[in-house]
Design a protein around this nucleic acid. Structure first.
Length: 574
DNA sequence: ATAGGGTTAG
């Protein structure tokens, strides 16, 4: 029987049952080798119907490695990848022979469930069975280590690999880019080009572009875009999407849209989502919603990411009613809201001051609200001084084991706004007792193509003296404008410092100051900040852009703010 | 017959 035809036909359980009956009558379960039987097992596993697959096993006289591999392969791609790992252990316990493919399939499952210690176990099996020299398996291992977050092991494997090929390089570059080691990913990409043994292909540039997006490294990103053209790499949808995302994340929506608009290939769902998210991040709600409409006309069905991007656009543009009707229309369009959608709506209502409504929605949720959701509810409480809801949300967060400094600070802000200093002190004590880790804020700034990273108040940069001098100058000028730091800013930063110091020695000001020193007049400065820009911060940047007559683009954790001569293109902020 | 590297996400 033709297996390809079989694969197309076997889309329902009854097909599988028919096939099984056929195999039983022909006595195929007795024979040691039968590809159709293995395929049947794989389909059952993929469905996933692990019990059916198991009962087939009981009919086989002596299950071969092929039969086991089939079930592993099916389960690894199914909705129950963890089951593949159990079957692997069953094989080991029963002393069944495993081969390189067996390992490859379990590893895929390990990656999907992010099982770090399991990956290590499979690795030791690989070594014990003598498969360590297998180049394909080596790359799989490397990739899985990276995916489960163990970049150290991934790197070590790469360095010690007897045979490396293009896929090994790609796996590590992509792994580093996704795993918060974006600058390392770019370095590796550079090294690959310098060594010249392998020519970067489409997959390689995807990893490198994704690294640029994470860093906001515009100059590098542009170089890669040029490289793609010069080397005539295939601008397929996926590469296009990555280019669009890169321009958007580097602050250039217009350029992103040019690429989006002029792509030769057919736009995919991801293309639309990426572009909608790009407009959302830049505060251009109407363009984002327009695209959302257009994608429907282009016969692309919005998925959960599309809705999230559209909701996000409403948040950033303050389109409360549009956001609500969008949210309410989700279910009838076949997309069930998840925690993130609820979070977005809570955020939307919260910013508009409709905290009770937001809380009612939280209470009505069919799933358990996650930490991020309670944080979204807690966030705007201090602006509107809602102690009651702030306390409810904080209690939930503490119950859920959150030890995040930001959560405590937000509650303390609410008390501070009501001048309940005793409660503020109590929160500080709790933070001390619970040993709440203060996460230092950091920013990136790109100057002349080089990326600099700053932590709050650090002195690591070679030019730190000049930077601090510049900060003094900035502080002086800001004071001349009669600016006084507000309470929420200081508490947000939980600096022990005095208000003024907290304001000026914040990482972001360091970055801005660095830009002021090093770039030539008239160039725009890009700052990439890991925190949200809050009220005072925002105001100070406006002042700086006005005083120094500079364009400053700041990307915080959720969106872009473009400051030009003391104005900001982003409509709302907090 | 069956294996590795890929884009979007408050």
């Amino acid at each position: 029987m033709d297996l390809n035809r079989l694969a197309q036909k076997c889309s329902t359980v009854s097909h599988l049952k028919q096939l099984q009956a056929h195999l039983t009558t022909t006595g195929s379960f007795k024979s040691p080798f039968c590809p159709v039987r293995s395929k049947l097992i794989e389909f059952y596993a993929l469905f996933p119907l692990p019990h059916q697959a198991h009962s087939l096993f009981l009919q086989i006289d002596t299950p071969s490695t092929n039969d086991f591999n089939a079930i592993l392969r099916g389960l690894a791609s199914s909705s129950q990848p963890a089951a593949a790992i159990s079957w692997f252990h069953r094989m080991l316990r029963g002393s069944h022979k495993i081969d390189a493919l067996t390992c490859s399939f379990v590893l895929k499952a390990c990656a999907r469930v992010l099982a770090r210690s399991q990956t290590l176990q499979v690795h030791s099996q690989v070594v014990r069975c003598g498969f360590a020299a297998d180049a394909l398996l080596g790359t799989t291992l490397l990739d899985v280590y990276a995916k489960v977050g163990d970049l150290g092991s991934a790197r070590k494997l790469f360095d010690e690999m007897p045979v490396r090929d293009i896929a090994s390089w790609n796996a590590l570059i992509a792994g580093l880019a996704q795993g918060n080691f974006a600058s390392e990913a770019l370095e590796l990409f550079k090294r690959m080009r310098e060594e010249g043994l392998f020519r970067p292909n489409e997959v390689t540039v995807l990893g490198a572009l994704s690294a640029c997006s994470h860093l906001g490294a515009l100059k590098e990103g542009e170089k890669i875009h040029r490289f793609i053209r010069d080397e005539k790499l295939d601008m397929n949808v996926i590469v296009c999407n990555a280019v669009i995302d890169m321009y958007a994340k580097c602050g250039f929506v217009d350029k992103a849209f040019v690429v989006f608009d002029s792509v030769k290939c057919k736009k995919s769902l991801v293309s639309w989502n990426t572009m909608i998210m790009a407009f959302a991040m830049h505060g251009d709600g109407s363009k984002a919603l327009e695209l959302f409409e257009q994608m429907g006309q282009a016969d692309v069905k919005p998925d959960e990411v599309s809705y999230l991007a559209a909701l996000c656009a409403c948040n950033h543009a303050g389109l409360v009613d549009d956001g609500m009707s969008l949210f309410n229309s989700m279910a009838e369009n076949g997309v069930n809201p998840n925690n993130k959608h609820y979070g977005s709506v809570v955020d939307l209502l919260g910013r508009a001051g409709r905290l009770q409504e937001a809380y009612d929605i939280v209470k009505s949720m069919p799933m358990v609200p996650d930490v991020v959701l309670w944080q979204s509810l807690l966030g705007p409480c201090h602006i509107y001084g809602n102690v009651k809801i702030a306390e409810i949300a904080s209690r939930k967060l503490v119950e859920m084991g959150s030890n995040n400094c930001g959560d405590f600070v937000l509650l303390s802000n609410v008390y501070a706004a009501h001048e309940r200093w005793k409660d503020v002190g109590r929160i500080r004590d709790i933070m001390k007792n619970r040993d709440v880790r203060k996460v230092p804020g950091f920013s990136y700034v790109e100057v002349d193509g080089a990326i600099n990273k700053f932590f709050t108040g650090d002195k690591n940069h070679e030019k730190w003296r000049e930077i601090y001098d510049k900060l003094d100058e900035i502080r002086f000028k800001i004071k001349e404008f009669g600016y006084v730091a507000g309470t929420n800013y200081v508490l947000h930063d939980i600096g022990e410092e005095e208000k003024e110091n907290a304001l000026c020695y914040h990482s972001e000001k360091l970055a801005v100051a660095f830009g002021l020193i090093s770039t030539s007049e008239g160039t725009s400065i890009q700052v990439f900040k890991n925190l949200r820009i809050c009220g005072d911060c925002h105001f100070v940047i406006k002042l700086i852009s006005m005083i120094y007559n500079r364009e400053i683009i700041v990307r915080d954790r959720v969106r872009f703010h473009k400051f030009e001569l003391g104005t900001c293109s982003c409509k709302d902020y907090w």
